[in-house]
Amino acid sequence: MHFGPHLLLAALEGLVTSAVLALTALGLSLVFGVMRVVNVAHGEFFMLGAVLAWAVSTAISGHPAVGFVAALVIAPLLVGLVALVAERLVLRRLNYNPEGTIVATIGMLYIIQQLALTFYGPEARPVEPPFSYRILLPWFGYSGYKLSVVAASAILLVITWLVLTRTRIGLIMRATQYDRETAQAFGIPVERVYAGVFAVGAMLAAIAAVLIVPISQAHYLMGQDPLLLSFIVVIIGGLGSLRGTVVAAILIGLSDGIISMFFSPTLAKIIATLVVAMVLVFRPQGLFGTTPR
């Protein structure tokens, strides 16, 4: 293959990474933006989504598409339920104190990871894609499923954006984000909003995971990289900014694919992490973010 097609392939792969990353990071960003909670267990919600997707799709026989669609519905719902319970039992009792919630979500991370290891096991397991259509490009064939992941993610992002900007729910969320006390004084049920946001944030990660399992397999440690990358995206994109998150996800997803063509993956991670830490130190509002309130 020549350089051009090679780059096209890398770009396509990068786009798939970006699509999944944008959804996952959006969940993290929503939770931080509205609740000011840094959810360290976010990657585990992602992992849980993938593992449950495997469980659901193996439990259902018949055409792979049936199992997949069932997984796409059931896994995120279950993950959302877990998040809801965690929010009720832990975060709310901590009164969403930023430092206390970090420690608590680290605890959740360990619990979810250990439970996955105990009940799901250390193996990596695949989920069959719902269809195996290949799109023939002049230089190579490309998985139609991968492209449909990009499309699905784009649709979900647009829906989220519409909900946030055009609906009453979005207005309520923004009001809560802006000032919790005032929102409460105006009769907004802040606790319900928080519970909802935390569940939706986890569900976005779970959906991203269900979309990705047919491509990469489900494994109990698979939450670590998405967590780190989501942090990177959210920090670069500016905490709590939807547009920044999407732009940063595309940037990181594409460069991740292209950089790892030239550098070792470890070196790529070192550079990326260092850059992000420096951004936080010297430009805490993110590269694209506006100045914080």
Binding site: L94, A104, G107, M108
Partner: peptide, 12 residues
């Protein structure tokens, strides 16, 4: 890890 996790949450 389960013990670590539960301990962290109970402590905070």
């Amino acid at each position: 890890l389960l013990i670590v996790g539960v301990a962290l949450i109970l402590l905070v």
